[in-house]
Design a protein around this nucleic acid. Structure first.
Length: 257
DNA sequence: ATGTCCTCTCTTAGAGGA
């Protein structure tokens, strides 16, 4: 079974490219982030025509997350992270699919840091970490995936010294990621490709893709009861080179069952 | 500081976010 995550940066503006990638790689489950579309403007019919069921949580202009499956039943569990009823950003959606919990997330960017946006990022991270602990308390396999807006280590940044003051790489952010991982989660791509340079995002600025000035910020976290089922993992980096691409590339894993 | 691209509006230019 192939599971993918893709920050599309606008699901409608990116629709032809999204459909092309779905057709080309045919993942069984897809988590999307940054729909940048309100609930009623999600391109449901085009997704259905491409052979996918979907649930989504939209929002005007910003954020927005969705989960797609190729024929698998989707049982929605929640469409927000617990812990702050005042937080109205569409950044989390969770479903049970094929006896797995799939959490699709778009963690706040947090820039500029320090500041209220960075505070929001860290608070959101804390809520995610609490919820993640709750998920681990059950017996079911869990995948947390999406745009974490964190480079976990220096290996995940083309030029670490340039990013130390950025919200995606500040010590507080990396510490928050580390705290989450200490619950026992496996970073699937890093587990299968230790020491390898892997990027999932290249800025639109300054020909970042052409220079391979990338970041690894889209992740797959697997619960401990998942480990022996992980078969392979990778980045469809060529998609970033397509015309009118998102600034992210799709990331995927293959698991047994 | 800048670069680019997306979406929305007090809309065809500029703001905000990333």
């Amino acid at each position: 079974m192939k599971i993918a995550t893709y920050n599309v940066n606008g699901v409608n503006g990116r629709l032809p490219l999204l459909l092309r990638w779905l057709q080309e790689t045919q993942p069984d489950i897809v988590c999307l982030q940054e729909l940048k579309a309100p609930e009623e403007k999600f391109p449901e019919q085009a997704i259905l025509d491409a052979g996918y069921n979907a649930i989504w949580h939209g929002q005007k202009s910003w954020n927005g997350v969705a989960i797609l499956t190729r024929g698998l039943e989707i049982k929605e569990v929640r469409r927000s992270l617990p812990g702050d009823p005042e937080d109205l950003h569409s950044r989390y959606i969770e479903a049970i699919i094929n006896d797995m919990v799939i959490g699709c997330l778009y963690l706040p960017n947090g820039n500029p840091a320090p500041g209220p946006k960075f505070d929001y990022k860290l608070a959101w991270f804390q809520r995610l970490t609490r919820h993640a602990a709750d998920l681990l308390a059950h017996d079911v396999p869990v995948i947390l995936t999406g745009d974490f807006n964190v480079m976990p280590t220096e290996l995940d940044v083309y030029k670490p010294e340039r990013w130390v003051d950025d919200a995606l790489f500040r010590p507080e952010t990396r510490a928050a990621f580390h705290t989450l991982m200490a619950q026992g989660w496996t970073d699937a791509l890093r587990k299968l490709h230790p020491g390898e340079t892997i990027y999932t995002f290249w800025d639109y600025f300054r020909n970042a893709y052409g220079r391979n000035a990338g970041l690894r910020i889209d992740h797959f976290l697997l619960s401990p009861n998942f480990n022996n089922r992980l078969l392979s993992a990778g980045v469809d980096r060529h998609v970033r080179g397509w015309e009118k691409s998102s600034d992210h590339a799709p990331v995927w894993i293959e698991v047994k069952g």
